[in-house]
Design a protein around this nucleic acid. Structure first.
Lengths: 181, 181
DNA sequence: CTCGTATGTTGCGCCTGTCAACATACGCGC
DNA sequence: GCGCGTATGTTGACAGGCGCAACATACGAG
């Protein structure tokens, strides 16, 4: 076969994808608590139990959403890094990180909110690791000296903290970007 | 009366408190999703509907947990600030912040996870404001110059980001503390 | 064309949140 | 001391969600 998990098209035409799209809409509209297997099924136009052919549980659906989020974040970071000159790379990545958090607050919170554990969701762990890798490599490139480790961690934490503050609407994206050194 | 909301002792002996304690235990053990009005009632030894005499809804219970969290955080920050010399105050507060996040990860995530909105929970807004005030005043005290605003925000974001990384178990508390300048 | 299997459906039990009606115990006024 | 009003807790019910099991269907291989 081909559909095993990745994205075939049987009766419905790619229900897995449709469910993720529907769930993402629910997530953006009402936060994690609003993401429901049944409501996603309803939006996709299938019966309340059809999702179980693609997701073992509600948490598996949430994990898929978080995985997509990490993939999108990684894409955004890669793009930003490729577009920027070596000197301004870190700032560019930081900006991309903040814009991601600002543009999809609910997904950002799902990714870092601890509702889904990476253990037991290999795809999620991989996507998350890849996104962090993109960030870490650029941070390390800028600080190759002795205290690099610490400075890299500081830069990461700063951006991450700003992103959370943005996602929580405690500061707005502009003020956050102004803090990126 | 006296019990209106604050903490009386009628039949049960202070059910409101007992429910908060029980819910806190559930929160620590299983995260937000494990916090259930019915389970809290069970732990407190009352019927499944008794909690409604003290909390209007599940979200109100979660808001109470977050409020308690912000009060504890503020207490920890105040204590740390009082114990430290003026020069090392910011670092001391940062350490207290990180230790709080490390000691009660689930509550930290509830406080900043966006599941409960401050709007509609005045107590929560007040407690959260007070905790941030404690942090902000010390940050500002250390950076009274022109770019103070920006530097204060950077310091805040750094600590906050480290705390999230600690709560998410992406780094351990020791490494985080080493980043506090 | 037939058959196996991936996909989707129907129906169910259990759990939760929440409402409504009822029961009970506390303390105030007499 | 005593009865009553009210804050508190209980019982019962309903809707909605999760996840299981049995069933139905459509696709592709041969």
């Amino acid at each position: 076969m081909s559909t095993s998990d990745g994205g075939g098209a049987y009766h419905h035409g790619d229900l897995r994808r449709s469910l993720i799209v529907a769930a993402h809409a629910l997530l953006r509209a009402g936060g994690v608590e609003a993401v429901t297997l049944r409501e996603a099924a309803r939006l996709a136009g299938v019966s309340h139990n059809a999702p179980y052919r693609h997701f073992a549980s509600r948490e598996a659906l949430l994990a898929a959403l978080a995985t997509e989020g990490f993939r999108a974040l990684r894409q955004a970071l890669d793009d930003a890094g490729r577009r920027a000159e070596p000197g301004g790379r870190l700032t560019a990545l930081g900006r991309a990180y903040l814009r991601f958090a600002d543009a999809d607050r609910a997904t950002f919170r799902l990714m870092f909110g601890g509702v889904v554990e990476e253990a037991g969701h290999p795809d999620l762990a991989e996507a998350s690791g890849a996104a962090f890798g993109a960030l870490r490599s650029v941070v390390a490139e800028r600080e190759p000296s002795a205290g690099a480790e610490r400075e890299a961690l500081r830069a990461w934490a700063l951006v991450h903290g700003l992103a959370h503050l943005v996602a929580d609407r405690q500061i707005d994206a502009e003020r956050a970007e102004a803090c990126l050194t």
